[in-house]
Amino acid sequence: MSLRLDGDVIRFEGQCRVEDTETLVALLHKAPEAKLDLAACQGMHAAVVQAMLAFGRPVVAWPTEGFLKDHLAPALAGLRPTKL
């Protein structure tokens, strides 16, 4: 289990794979105010990243893993996705 809703926060843990995307989208629909906690995330599929971009939820904690921290976090932090 790599995604779970913990109160107001969706926690990403370990590897978030393509098959987790459906779960994530369901959680995002289910909890429209939920924020994202990526601290324990070790890897992320592009489909998961895309869902994050689409829904544009605030991130409360960024990953510590090398690539996610160095490249993905800046790539996402700089974007303010437009909700159309």
Partner: peptide
């Protein structure tokens, strides 16, 4: 040698109620 990465949607996502998680739009 990756130094700068940006990720953006290729097209606007449209109505999120009908968001398709398995179509790549990046």
């Amino acid at each position: 040698g990756l130094v700068d990465l940006r990720i953006a949607p290729r097209e606007p996502f449209g109505d999120l109620a009908r968001y398709d998680p398995f179509t790549c739009n990046l």
